[in-house]
Amino acid sequence: MEITMYHYLFIGLLLFLIGLLGSVLVKNVIKVLISIEIMLLGVNINFITFAAFCDNIRFDGYIISLFYVGIGAVELAVALYLFYLMYQKKESDNIEKFSDL
């Protein structure tokens, strides 16, 4: 059975939806951050898939996913530092207690 583009897009979509589910439902801040990273991984898989299957000249999807990795790491570092500061104030990692940010 041949693996087509839709298979990879399907996996990317599933990862995106799982990350979305986690970022909406889970109350732990660290799990929410991990969920956002899973969402970004799904988007990244879609970029790579389109670059591999549709763009055989410039590979724009590869470059965009490379930038995403840099930006995603920066976003995570800043979010974790904010979490650290908020944790020292609130003594909790429940996201509902951070509503007065």
Binding site: I34, N44, I45, I48, A52, Y62, V69, G72, L76, L80
Partner: peptide, 28 residues
């Protein structure tokens, strides 16, 4: 998945940053 899709460079970056560096940050 990136490696299977023919993007070895992205696979290495993904494994290095998200496989090692980001978990260290979250673990801290």
């Amino acid at each position: 998945f990136f490696y299977v899709l023919g993007s070895e460079y992205n696979a290495i970056i993904q494994a290095a940053i998200y496989g090692f560096a980001v978990p260290v940050l979250i673990g801290l």
